[in-house]
Design a protein around this nucleic acid. Structure first.
Length: 864
RNA sequence: GCCUGGGUGGCGGAAUUGGUAGACGCAAGGGACUUAAAAUCCCUCGACUUAAUCGUCGUGCCGGUUCGAGUCCGGCCCCGGGCACCA
C-alpha cells in the first residue's frame, strides 16, 4: 500500500539518500552519450542562498535532468566566487577574518544547495579564494604580460580623502564616501590592464555566430564594444597638433571651437598659466568616476586663451576645457560642431559660441544657424556652405575631407572603439595577489613561475582604511627575483571578474595541480547551456569571452567561445516597506511584518505594520536584498513546504527571463498541486495493479484522454527542451492531471489509460520536482530508480484526430465555430462556415467579398 | 545622459510564425462535507449592458498597416537591468 498523505520531508530524504548512494550526479568523460555541459553562474558566498540563486539553480537542474533523461552525458558543477568586497565589509563590522567568514558561508550554502536536491557533481567544486585555483590567475597573468596583453598605466579612481582609500563605485553614495561622508575626488593611480581591445573586432564579429544567445545580450555587447569608423583629425597649434576623433568628418567645415577633457595635457598646460582654469580643472576632479555620473552632470566649461588652426581653412578656433569631454574615449578631445551635435549644441548655447550650418536634409534648405531649435544630426544629409565639398552626401563628404586631410598629414580614417582595456588592479585585501615584485634597481619584476602561487595571508583583518596587505611586512618585504636585493611585493589584488572569467574551465580538471587546464577542457567545453542573471549581460560575459580567446591563442584550448547557449534569468523582486525615523534614517520592514489593506476593487490601499498597526510607506518592488530587508529565506520555505514545492513554485510563477514577484500564496498553490497529485496516484495504485493497455479497444472518451496524454508529452518536451518555458510545461501537466482525475474510472481499460497517464505525468514532472516523482515512480510499479529513466516518446497513433474545430469570424469578429473532418477541402470548410447558424445572421443580405481560410485554425468571412 | 528589456483581469502569467485574448495558478465570493475549525471537493470570477445573451468595449497612451494586431510600423508615457571598482 502506498502512503496516502504526501510527506515531503520523508520523500526528499529518501530520494537524496538514493541519489547519493548511486552517485547519480557524478560525471565522467568516459560515460556514454554526447556530452552536455550545463552551467549556472557561480554564487558569491554571501551567507545564505537568496531566491535569485534558487531560481537560477532550479532552472539549471531542470535542464540537467531533462538532458540526462534524453541520453546526454551531463556535467553540472558548482563553485564559489569567493573573493570580494562583502567579506571585507563583514570583517570590518564583525572583526572576523574574511577567510573564515567566506569558508563558513560556503559550508552553509553548500548544505542549502544539497537540501534543494540539485544534481550537482560536488567532486569538481572550486572556490576562487583557494591558492590552487588563483595560482592559475597569476600564472596566466604572467603569460599575458610576456605577450604584451597585460601592461601598466595610470587610471582614474574614486578617492576618499579622509580614509585615504580608493572607493568602489558602490561605496560612493551621492558623491560622498560611504563611511566618512567626505566628498569623493578623482585620483590617478598606477594599475595593470589587460588588452581586451586587441580582441575588440573578434569579440564583435563572433556575436553573429552565437545563435544560442539572446538578441538583447548580443546587442548590448555590440553597443558596449561600440566600433565606429571615423577620422582622426589634427588641429595644429603653436607647439604641436591636437588630435581629435570624429565620426562626422563631413561636418568639419562647421567646427567653431575645440574642447578637451580636464585631464588632457593641454588643459593642464592652460591651468598652469591661469588660476581660473586651474580652479575649473580642480572642480572637475570632484565627484566620482562612473559614466552615469559624468553623463548626467551639468555641462560646464571654460575658455582658454589658446587657439588651434582649422586643418583645412587655417581659421583660428578657440580651445575650451569642458567636463563633457571624456578622457577615456578617443583622444580626450573633440572638434565641436554645435549645429550638428547634441552636446556641442547645448554647450554652445550656454556659452554663446557660434553655430555654423554645414549640412542640410536632401531637398530641403539649410537651417538658419541663429534660429535653429535643435541640431541636425542625421547622416542622411547633403553638405552645404562647405566650399568645394558642397553637394556631397555624408559618405562622399567624409571620404573627400579625409583624403584632403591625409594629403596635409593632418588626418586619416581610423576605427575607434568605445570598449576600453580592462583595469584589473584593486587596492583590496581579499583578492588574488598580482604576482609582481617592485625592485628599486630592476623595476617591476614578474614573480617567477616556480614561486607561484603568491599566497594571500588569510588571517588579516581589514579596518576600512587602505589595504592591510600594504601594512603587513611579512608579505610586502621580499627579495628581487632578478638581483636578490630587498624589494617590495605588489599589494594590489586582481578584480574578481578575473576569477569568474575562467572558473567554468577549471571544473573540467579541478584536480590537476600541474596545469591551468588539460585535455578534459576540450571534452566538456564549450558550455552547452549557461544560465545566470541578466545583470551580467555585458561585463562578466564579455570578459569570459575575451579570456577564452586569449587562452586559445596560447594553445591552452581549442574552442573560440565559452558559452554556446545562454539563458538570462530575470531577477526576483519583493515589496519594499519603510519608515523614516525622527533622525531621518530609513528603517526597512520585511514584507512578512507588514499587513496590506485592500480597497473594494482589491487594490492595495494601505500598509500597516502588524506589531503596532500604524502605517508604513510602500516603496514598490525591488530586488531582494539585505539592505532593503525584503529578502525571503529559502531555507525556511524548504523546511516548511519541502524542496519540491519551492522548486515548483519558482518554475511555475513566471518564464525564466522575466522578473519574478515573490508571493507566498503561490507557494501554497504549488504545494496543493503536489498533494493532489500524490492523492490521485495513491488512490489509483491502492486499487490494485492496472491491466495492460489495449489501444485497439478504447472508447471515444478513453481515446480523448490518451490523446491529451501524448499531446502533453510533445508539449512539455518542447517547452523544456526548446522554449525553456517551464511555466507553460507545468500548466500543461496540471491540465492533464485535472483531465485524468475528472475522467470516469469504471472499466479495466479506464485504469490502463490512467496508469499510462500517471506514469507520463511522473516522468514529465521529474526534472522540476525530482524527489516526489522518485516516490511516485516506485509506487506506480515502475522498475529501477526514476533518475535512470528515459524521457517518454509520444505515440503518433494516439495523436491522430478525425475532425478539427475551426473558429468562424465575420469581418475579423468571432461569430461561431464549426467541426470539419481533418481531410476536408477548402470548399467544404467554406460551406460549413457559411451555413453555421450562429454565423448566418451576420452574413445574410450582405455580399461575401472573400473568405480567408487558415488551415486548422479559422475561417474569416469578409462581407460588405 | 547613453545602451537594453518590459507594460495583458484584483494578482502571477497564457496566447510558440499576424489568426478564438485571459490557458494554468493565486486571491476573492458562494456552496458541500464537519459538532466546529482546518483540510478537501464543487460553482462563479475582465468591464459595460442584459431576464439571459449569441450584444458592445477591452492587452500602458496616440496614430498607422492588414480580411484580421497583445503580436508588425511610427510617435509618446511609465517601470526594471547595465554603464567598466557590487557581484
Amino acid at each position: 500500500m502506498m502512503q496516502d498523505i504526501y510527506q515531503p520531508t520523508v520523500v526528499e530524504a529518501a530520494a537524496q539518500a538514493l541519489w547519493e548512494r548511486d552517485g547519480a550526479a557524478r560525471s565522467s568523460e568516459q560515460a556514454p552519450g554526447q556530452k552536455y555541459y550545463c552551467l549556472c553562474m557561480l554564487p558569491y558566498p554571501s551567507g545564505r542562498l537568496h531566491m535569485g540563486h534558487v531560481r537560477n539553480y532550479t532552472i539549471g537542474d531542470v535542464i540537467t535532468r531533462y538532458q540526462r533523461m534524453n541520453g546526454r552525458n551531463v556535467l553540472q558543477p558548482m563553485g564559489w566566487d569567493a573573493f570580494g568586497l562583502p567579506a571585507e565589509n563583514a570583517a570590518i563590522k564583525n572583526r572576523v577574518p574574511p577567510a573564515k567568514w567566506t569558508y563558513d558561508n560556503i559550508a552553509y550554502m553548500r548544505m542549502q544547495l544539497k537540501s534543494l536536491g540539485f544534481a550537482i557533481d560536488w567532486e569538481r567544486e572550486v572556490a576562487t579564494c583557494e591558492p590552487r585555483y588563483y595560482r592559475w590567475n597569476q600564472w596566466f597573468f604572467l603569460r599575458m604580460l610576456e605577450k604584451g596583453l597585460a601592461y601598466k598605466r595610470t587610471a582614474t579612481v574614486n578617492w576618499d580623502p579622509v580614509d585615504q582609500t580608493v572607493l568602489a563605485n558602490e561605496q560612493v553614495i551621492d558623491g560622498r564616501g560611504w563611511r566618512t561622508g567626505a566628498l569623493v575626488e578623482k585620483r590617478e593611480i598606477p594599475m595593470y590592464y589587460l588588452k581586451i581591445t586587441a580582441y575588440a573586432d573578434e569579440l564583435l564579429d563572433a556575436l553573429d555566430h552565437l545563435p544560442g544567445w539572446p538578441e538583447r545580450v548580443k546587442l548590448m555587447q555590440a553597443n558596449w564594444i561600440g566600433r565606429s569608423e571615423g577620422v582622426e583629425i589634427g588641429f595644429p597649434y603653436d607647439s604641436g597638433v591636437l588630435k581629435v576623433f570624429t565620426t562626422r568628418a563631413d561636418t568639419l567645415m562647421g567646427a567653431t571651437y575645440v574642447a578637451v577633457a580636464a585631464e588632457h595635457p593641454l588643459a593642464l598646460k592652460a591651468a598652469a598659466q591661469d588660476p581660473k582654469i586651474a580652479a575649473f580643472v580642480e572642480e572637475c576632479r570632484k565627484g566620482g568616476v562612473t559614466e552615469a555620473e559624468l553623463a548626467t552632470q551639468e555641462k560646464k566649461g571654460i575658455a582658454t586663451t589658446m587657439r588651434v588652426q582649422h586643418p583645412l581653412t587655417g581659421e583660428a578656433l578657440p580651445l575650451w576645457v569642458a567636463n563633457y569631454v571624456l578622457m577615456s574615449y578617443g583622444e580626450g578631445a573633440v572638434m565641436a560642431v554645435p549645429a550638428h551635435d547634441e552636446r556641442d549644441f547645448e554647450f554652445a548655447k550656454k556659452y554663446g559660441l557660434p553655430l555654423k550650418v554645414v549640412v542640410r536634409v536632401p531637398g530641403g534648405a539649410a537651417e538658419d544657424a541663429r534660429s535653429m531649435a535643435q541640431p541636425v544630426i542625421s547622416k542622411d544629409v547633403v553638405l552645404c556652405d562647405s566650399g568645394k565639398y558642397d553637394g556631397l552626401d555624408y559618405q562622399a563628404g567624409v571620404d573627400a575631407i579625409a583624403t584632403d586631410l591625409a594629403a596635409k598629414s593632418l588626418g586619416q580614417k581610423r576605427v575607434q572603439y568605445r570598449l576600453r582595456d580592462w583595469g584589473i588592479s584593486r587596492q583590496r585585501y581579499w583578492g588574488c595577489p598580482i604576482p609582481i615584485i617592485h625592485c628599486p634597481d630592476c623595476g617591476d619584476v614578474p614573480v617567477p613561475d616556480k614561486d607561484l602561487p603568491v599566497v594571500l595571508p588569510e588571517d588579516l583583518a581589514p579596518d576600512g582604511s587602505g589595504n592591510p596587505l600594504a601594512k603587513y611586512k611579512a608579505f610586502v618585504d621580499c627579495a628581487c627575483p632578478k638581483c636578490g636585493k630587498p624589494a617590495r611585493r605588489e599589494t594590489d589584488t586582481m578584480d574578481t571578474f578575473v576569477d569568474s572569467s575562467w572558473y567554468y574551465m577549471r571544473y573540467a580538471c579541478s584536480d590537476n595541480d600541474a596545469a591551468m587546464v588539460d585535455g578534459r577542457v576540450d571534452y566538456w567545453l564549450p558550455v552547452d547551456q549557461y544560465i545566470g542573471g541578466i545583470e551580467h549581460a555585458i561585463l562578466h560575459l564579455l570578459y569570459s569571452r575575451f579570456w577564452t580567446k586569449a587562452m586559445r591563442d596560447m594553445q591552452l584550448l581549442k574552442f573560440d567561445e565559452p558559452f554556446t547557449n545562454l539563458l538570462t534569468q530575470g531577477m526576483v523582486l519583493n515589496h519594499i516597506f519603510l519608515r523614516k525615523t525622527a533622525a531621518g534614517a530609513l528603517d526597512y520592514y520585511s514584507p512578512t511584518e507588514v499587513e496590506l489593506k485592500h480597497d473594494a476593487d482589491g487594490r492595495v490601499s494601505a500598509a500597516v505594520l502588524k506589531v503596532d498597526g500604524k502605517p508604513v510607506q510602500y516603496e514598490g518592488l525591488g530586488t531582494m536584498s539585505k539592505s532593503k530587508n525584503n529578502g525571503v529565506d529559502p531555507q525556511a520555505l524548504v523546511e516548511r513546504y519541502g524542496a519540491d514545492t519551492v522548486r515548483l513554485f519558482m518554475m511555475f510563477a513566471a518564464p525564466p527571463e522575466l522578473t519574478l514577484e515573490w508571493s507566498e500564496a503561490g507557494v501554497e498553490g504549488a504545494q496543493r498541486f503536489l498533494k493532489r497529485l500524490w492523492k490521485a496516484i495513491s488512490e489509483h495504485v491502492n486499487t490494485g495493479p492496472a491491466p495492460a493497455l489495449d489501444t485497439a479497444a478504447l472508447s471515444p472518451g478513453q481515446r480523448v484522454l490518451r490523446r491529451q496524454v501524448h499531446e502533453t508529452i510533445v508539449k512539455v518536451g518542447d517547452d523544456i527542451g526548446r522554449r525553456y518555458t517551464f511555466n507553460t510545461a507545468i500548466a500543461a501537466i496540471m491540465e492533464l492531471l485535472n483531465a485524468v482525475t475528472r475522467t470516469e474510472n469504471i472499466t479495466p481499460q479506464d485504469r490502463a489509460v490512467k496508469q499510462e497517464a500517471y506514469t507520463a505525468i511522473t516522468l514529465l514532472l521529474s526534472p522540476m520536482v525530482p524527489h516526489v516523482c522518485e516516490s511516485l515512480w516506485t509506487a506506480l510499479g515502475q522498475p529501477g530508480s526514476l533518475i535512470a529513466a528515459r524521457w517518454p516518446a509520444a505515440d503518433a497513433g494516439a495523436l491522430k484526430r478525425d475532425s478539427l474545430e475551426l473558429v468562424v469570424q465575420v469581418n475579423g469578429k468571432l461569430r461561431g465555430s464549426i467541426s470539419v473532418p481533418v481531410d476536408a477541402g477548402r470548399e467544404q470548410v467554406e460551406q460549413a462556415a457559411l451555413s453555421e447558424p450562429s454565423v448566418q445572421p451576420f452574413v445574410q443580405g450582405k455580399t461575401v467579398r472573400k473568405i480567408v481560410v487558415v488551415p486548422g485554425r479559422l475561417v474569416n468571412v469578409v462581407v460588405a
